[in-house]
Design a protein around this nucleic acid. Structure first.
Length: 360
DNA sequence: AAGTCGGGGCC
DNA sequence: GGCCCAGACTT
């Protein structure tokens, strides 16, 4: 523990509190992002969708997904009424697929209990699946201008530096302290702009590496800047060893050229997505094949392995390709296992590495 | 408090 | 290659 580390008790001078929001808003008017897709029009549904997509995902990545999603499902009731496969297909490639399932479940609950609209209330929003405290605050402030603090990755980074707070921001004790600071800086007006301004500052100036402090509207009061500690804040997440896992996947085609695909279970990795039949090892792969299919397993062509990295483990997929296969009549084509033609791929939610393999 | 959940951007 | 990103949820 270093001497500069702050305790949980904080006190903010009123002048400094005012300076934070005032300077940030003045900077935002000239230098903020005013042309993001969800800002025009800035409806509650579009703000909500953008906030969910932006969880752990950069703006640049989200934009094309957002445009495609709102074009297909332009309103909350449309999302609620859509087929789950359509929602998953629209999300396919974005990752963290629980976000998509929670999004639709929340939409359906809004139709049932909130007259088809997003509730304008922090606790009601937090009670919906996929919406936590920060996302609820971001929705309320941007959609209606309500006065709530957010605390996302951008704000955490800015506040850790501005107040010189050490310790990984994901730790509950540090996070609690950051919430206190975030609440203390709130302006009395312009909440939508203020919320966007914080994110813009974190995304464009107060970046993780090589921040542009000389351009920062908060540089005069930034403690880390004054103390020369900007580069070491926020404190990095403690490292962890990620395990390496393996799996065999079967790329099977029938005489029509259709590919056999399987829907994954509703929980766990790639939940509810369509993927190639997968087994833990070669023996299990062969056993499944011989139980379900008619064909010569030993004639399969081994394709180069595919390496895929998750946050908490690495996966090496070993594909086997085999053509001219038929399903055993006792197994049959059903809701969770079916032959898919190439022109149907776009309509199915598939893990990114599987889609890449099939479309290569 | 720690683990589970993707995929891509960027160094 | 590693680390992180407009986090939430489960255990």
């Amino acid at each position: 523990m270093t001497s500069h580390h702050k305790t949980a008790t904080v006190s903010i001078a009123p002048a400094e509190t005012e300076a934070f929001a005032t300077r940030l808003l003045r900077w935002f008017d000239r230098n903020g992002r005013h042309d993001l897709p969800w800002q025009h029009p800035r409806t509650p549904y579009r703000v909500w969708l953008s906030e969910i997509m932006l969880q752990q995902t950069q703006v640049k990545t989200v934009i094309p997904y957002f445009e495609r999603f709102v074009a297909a499902l332009p309103t909350l009731p449309a999302l609620a009424a859509a087929a789950q496969d359509e929602v998953m297909a629209l999300w396919s490639g974005l990752g963290y697929y629980a976000r998509a399932r929670n999004l639709q479940a929340a939409a359906q609950r809004c139709v049932e209990r909130h007259d088809g609209e997003l509730p304008r209330d922090l606790n009601a929003l937090t009670g919906l699946p996929g919406i936590g405290r920060s996302t609820a605050a971001a929705i309320l402030s941007q959609a209606w201008g309500d006065r709530h603090a957010i605390l996302d990755g951008n704000v955490k980074r800015v506040l850790c530096r501005y107040h010189d707070i050490a310790g990984h921001p994901g730790l509950p004790a540090v996070e609690k302290q950051l919430w206190t600071h975030a609440e203390s800086h709130l302006p009395d007006a312009r909440m939508a702009d203020y919320t966007q301004a914080q994110m813009d500052l974190g995304a464009t100036l107060c970046t993780r590496s090589d921040p542009a402090c000389v351009l920062c509207p908060l540089q005069d009061n930034c403690v880390a800047r004054r103390e020369g500690r900007v580069a070491e804040l926020p404190t990095a997440r403690p490292g962890k060893v990620v395990p390496q896992k393996h799996a065999c996947i079967l790329w099977l085609e029938n005489s029509d050229g259709a590919v056999l695909m399987q829907r994954r279970p509703p929980t766990g990795i790639w939940a509810s997505l369509w993927t190639l039949p997968q087994a833990e090892d070669a023996a299990a792969s062969r056993a499944w094949f011989e139980r379900a299919l008619i064909g010569d397993y030993d004639a399969a062509e081994a394709l180069p392995p595919i390496d895929h990295a998750f946050s908490h483990y690495r996966l090496r997929l070993h594909p086997l390709r085999l053509r001219g296969i038929a399903l055993d009549r006792r197994v049959g084509d059903n809701d969770d296992l079916r032959w898919v033609m190439r022109d149907e791929f776009a309509g199915l939610g598939m893990p990114a590495p599987i889609r890449k393999l099939l479309e290569s």
